[in-house]
Nucleic acid binder design. Structure first.
Lengths: 236, 236
DNA sequence: CGTCTGCTTGAGCCTTGTCAAGAAACGTGG
DNA sequence: CCACGTTTCTTGACAAGGCTCAAGCAGACG
């Protein structure tokens, strides 16, 4: 992920690889980090699909973000005594845990990587504000459409062969928890998108049939494009 | 802001002050940075209240964040060729503009300040996820209550004399654009909170009368507390 | 003094949620 | 490979929270 945005020097590459020295498998459904529990580790997701979520006290869940291979997990938790969100695996995953001190060392020794971590966290921030605007100001149909496009785009970053069809490894309840809807209503929206010819569905796979109309319905922006990183520090 | 979280060395303090060398007044209602326009400057807000928002293509607005003295503005815009959000002044303000390269220099020369910028952006991120959960999963009343508490808490960070009463310099339409509601419904919710004795209102001032009940109704968490910054790099 | 912006309130509607029940898919142990 | 239990999907009927439209009012400001 970090390495996809700029060309790294061999030294920087080695520093990043050092973060990924250790590997840990995580079973589907397992929780890597629980909200309100202490935790001083960060992770890089190597394989699989994860999510972060919070539980409200009426028991409802808000999924904050889906996490893909290459993503850095738990940065926000590292800043707090107790994790502000739960990290859970949606499929069998592999993560590379590393200590907060490793992040600290990285920032001292590789300012350009430090800047990249900041850039990365800003991309994530803007993606979150997009979702905030979606939940605050768009219809149920638009939110579901936006979720589908976003999932496809992020899958494509990992696997270039993904084009318009993909397996969405999510239940409709999970889609609802991400978009602020009920599972029942998600079902209705998917059906509606299907009836209108915007998507097709079969056996857990979704095909985006009219991407233009879908993007328009969703008012979606790909936040991994349009970056300007020319101002980053030079390599030491 | 950055300086409130940890003790800085004199050298670090001077580096921060350098960012605030220049000052620029911004009139109430003025726009400092417009969505989709180029922009290579960042700012530190010195005085006044600002907001960041996006406009959707049906013309509706989502306010993303309110900005208080000490906040760093435009970090996310610095990462993109075009600003992802608009920055506008809600009252007469003073900002200190500085160039992206100054941020870059800071990260090279003061790793601990670089880490603080990252910490700061993570606090903001978590506050955004709280709002995401509020919009996705809580009632109109809870959202309005959460906004009131958050405003009070952030005002108090700037001015310790603020306790339970404060002037909220927002129209009900702005509250609506922040909480994903219409101005009309915000009005009804404020009235309801008042009738239930949770708040009092007079002439633009709000008093939190039953903070415990309000916090419970809002399920609000103060994200400027509970930090753990022991792992930050040592000063060089 | 007139205009404009913001606040307030009511009536009716619409999007989304709730509840319920059956069908389909999935996973597991025998 | 089958049988069973469990999860997930689907659909309908109904309820409700929040939106729209509309109108009156109050205060700010030129």
């Amino acid at each position: 992920m970090l390495s996809q945005l700029i060309d790294l020097t061999p030294v920087e590459q080695r520093a990043l690889e050092k973060l990924e020295e250790r590997q840990r498998p995580v079973r589907r459904g397992a929780v890597l980090q629980r909200e309100n529990e202490g935790c001083s580790e960060l992770y890089i997701l190597r394989k699989g699909l994860m999510m972060s979520y919070v539980l409200l006290d009426d028991g409802s869940r808000q999924i904050l973000r889906f996490l893909f291979p290459g993503d850095m997990l738990g940065v926000s938790s590292a800043v707090y005594q107790e994790a502000p969100e739960t990290l859970a695996a949606l499929s069998d995953c592999v993560v590379c845990p590393f200590d907060r001190s490793a992040l600290s060392d990285l920032m001292v020794e590789h300012p350009r990587l430090a800047a990249m971590v900041l850039v990365y966290s800003q991309i994530e921030r803007v993606a979150l504000t997009d979702r905030l605007a979606a939940l605050g100001r768009t219809s149920a149909k638009a939110r579901v459409a936006a979720l589908l496009i976003e999932l496809r785009n992020r899958l494509r970053r990992v696997d270039k062969s993904v084009t318009t069809a993909f397996t969405l490894g999510l239940t409709q309840e999970e889609i609802g928890d991400a978009t602020g809807l009920t599972a029942v209503h998600v079902n209705r929206m998917l059906r509606q998108l299907e009836e209108e010819g915007l998507i097709a569905r079969e056996a857990g796979r979704v095909t985006l049939r009219d991407e233009r109309a879908l993007t328009r319905a969703a008012n979606y922006i790909n936040r991994y494009e349009g970056l300007d990183l020319g101002w980053l520090p030079r390599t030491r």
